[in-house]
């Protein structure tokens, strides 16, 4: 039986850069717990001979030739324009130093 704590919710929220109120943390703790309990039913099944599902579509090897298809200058301009900030043709962000 999975046990989700408030701490788990805070941790996951931080990883996903989500800001949650106290009420939301409470609510999601309960909800996540319920979801995991539901999923837990799978543990009752014998999956010894079932390969893990990595994709739900019955497709494989969808690929393309190594050819250039560059998009137009207008599209590139739109990509830059859509960003919160730019400088010339650079995207501009808050200072990040590793």
């Amino acid at each position: 039986m999975a046990k989700i704590t408030r701490k788990d919710v805070e941790y996951v929220a931080r990883l996903a850069r989500l800001e949650l109120t106290d009420a939301e943390k409470e609510k999601f703790t309960v909800q996540l717990e319920k979801i995991l309990d539901y999923i837990d039913q799978l543990n009752k099944l014998d999956t010894k001979d079932t390969p893990p599902t990595s994709h739900v579509l019955p497709l494989k090897n969808v690929w393309r030739k190594d050819e250039l298809s560059q998009c137009s200058g207008e599209i590139r301009e739109a990509l830059l324009k859509n960003a919160p900030d730019r400088e010339g043709n650079f995207f501009k962000v808050k200072k990040v130093i590793e």
């Binding site: 969808v62 560059q70 990509l79």
Partner: peptide, 30 residues
């Protein structure tokens, strides 16, 4: 399908896929 060329002008080899625009899909280069 963007070019991999080194030394191109900044942000000239970009498209909706590699800049992560909503709704785009990657297609693998064989």
């Amino acid at each position: 399908g963007c070019s991999t060329e080194f030394g191109s002008g900044e942000n000239t080899n970009i498209c909706p896929v590699c800049t992560g625009q909503p709704g785009v899909l990657p297609v693998l280069n064989k």
